[in-house]
Nucleic acid binder design. Structure first.
Lengths: 167, 167
DNA sequence: TTAAAGTTTCAATAATTTTTGAAAGTTTGA
DNA sequence: TCAAACTTTCAAAAATTATTGAAACTTTAA
């Protein structure tokens, strides 16, 4: 396979994958492009490479910066802003884990705690409801703790842990 | 909070959460409803509770069955089909982990392996591309192995592992 | 068989999400 | 201070995704 085809395929794949770690296609594609680019890219560069509009590029770059996985840089003597992504994939994973915990798991835990607190009036319905929402709360809590481990340890924790578990 | 409110809130929350573990709102809401229902429900029951159409209910129930987290049951002497969900949340987590590995991670690994295999022609571009896609492949591989652990062990592996890690 | 009960399919429609592009806003060098 | 270079905003349009509902299909009891 040629570099050009491989690059397109990678960007395409990463883009459709995005929708399932909770970000849109353009955002994931911009990220993919920056990840494999040896040099920072300008907004124009991104627009041209991905054939997307200026507004779209601007908004999605901002979101990537919000997620903490893309950074603004400037080139000496140039007015234009350049963008580059976190290049260390372990650090990338940590950052994503951190954001997903904050954006998704924490709010869910809050709701689960709240709803599982209703008074048990003795009916099968409320008994089952309380039992199941409590069980989900516990599960989500465990998942979150594991994510936080990933976030707070050195960046190759994931690999180390896995190796340890194999023994 | 009243049972009714808590129930609505739970179904609502689970529904919007669905979009981020890769299933649509109706599908997640049906799952939530079955999860907290002490008795199996008919298609009519689900339609009424969630105010969704027959077609929608039918299609989403089928998908939930495909995912392996909802089952058809029949009541003695009744023609109608009833549906019930996997009630053990650990088993639920295992099943979801299994499906996500199969549907998402495996195909991604395949593409990453393929594209990282281009010939290094010595340019900065191909060097960076190969380096980064290989690193992603390794990361995804580790993540997948961990998921498979979850899938293949007894259902409270997750909890046990976590407790062990705390020590 | 038959017809009633129940389920599935799918084209049309609705709802939601993403994208565009031009105007407004900001920054900076002279 | 000005104006060129660049970025952001956001209402409208496009694209995508989900939902409906009625017809087609399937199953079963008599």
């Amino acid at each position: 396979m040629e570099y050009k085809d491989a690059k397109d395929k990678f960007i395409q794949t990463w883009g459709s994958l995005g929708s399932l770690w909770g970000i849109n296609k353009a955002m994931a594609q911009i990220h993919a492009l920056l990840l494999i680019s040896p040099e920072p890219l300008s907004m124009e560069d991104v627009m041209e490479e991905l054939h997307i509009s200026r507004g779209n590029t601007s908004m999605n770059l901002r979101q990537l910066i919000d997620w903490g996985i893309v950074f603004k840089t400037s080139k000496a003597g140039e007015r234009k802003e350049y963008f580059t992504s976190e290049k260390d994939v372990n650090e990338l994973a940590r950052q994503i884990a951190r954001e997903r915990s904050r954006r998704e798991i924490q709010p869910t835990l809050k709701v689960l705690k709240e709803v599982s607190n209703i008074e048990d009036n003795g009916t099968a319905e409320t008994k089952e409801f309380i039992k199941q929402t409590k069980a989900l709360h516990e599960l989500a809590d465990t998942a979150d703790s594991i994510l936080n481990r990933v976030v707070n340890q050195e960046s190759n924790w994931l690999t180390k842990t896995f190796i340890k578990l194999l023994k």
